[in-house]
Amino acid sequence: MDLSFYKAPLSEEIRNEGRAEGQAEGRAESRAEDILFILELRGIAVSEDVRGRITGCGDNETLLGWLARALTAPSAEGLFSDE
């Protein structure tokens, strides 16, 4: 059986891209969990709509902004006040 395809540079590039995408998704999931955790610790109620918006977001920059706002936002909806 010829396994040369798996050692080819193109295959390696595809695997690396897949790893990078997986790592970005993992960071997004972690940030979403952190946002929800902070809101929970602060005693702020989170509606299902807000929870879905947070957990459904895959943009790490957006999530980082929401994470910063979670520290001081008066409500869960306040995370999105600048949008």
Rank of each mutant, 00 (worst) to 15 (best):
M1E: 07
D2R: 00
S4M: 14
Y6V: 00
Y6E: 05
K7P: 14
K7T: 15
L10M: 12
I14M: 03
I14V: 03
R15C: 09
R15M: 15
R15H: 06
E17N: 13
E17A: 06
E17K: 09
G18V: 02
R19L: 12
R19G: 10
A20F: 04
E21V: 03
E21T: 04
A24P: 08
A24Y: 03
E25R: 03
E25C: 00
E25D: 03
E25I: 05
R27A: 09
R27V: 05
E29Q: 10
E29R: 09
S30W: 10
R31L: 05
A32E: 00
E33V: 04
E33C: 04
D34C: 14
I35M: 00
I35P: 00
L36E: 04
L36Q: 02
F37S: 14
I38E: 05
L39A: 01
E40A: 08
L41M: 09
I44P: 03
I44L: 12
V46S: 10
V46E: 02
V46P: 02
V46M: 07
S47W: 01
S47M: 07
S47C: 06
E48A: 04
E48H: 04
E48R: 03
D49W: 10
D49N: 11
V50G: 00
R51E: 14
G52P: 01
R53A: 07
R53K: 10
R53S: 08
T55I: 13
C57M: 09
C57S: 15
D59R: 11
D59K: 14
E61F: 14
T62R: 10
T62C: 08
L63I: 05
L63Y: 06
L63M: 06
L64S: 13
L64K: 15
G65H: 11
W66F: 13
A68D: 08
R69S: 11
R69A: 10
A70V: 05
L71G: 08
A73Q: 12
P74C: 14
G78H: 08
L79Q: 10
L79H: 09
F80I: 14
S81F: 15
S81Y: 12
D82V: 13
D82Q: 15
E83M: 10
E83I: 08
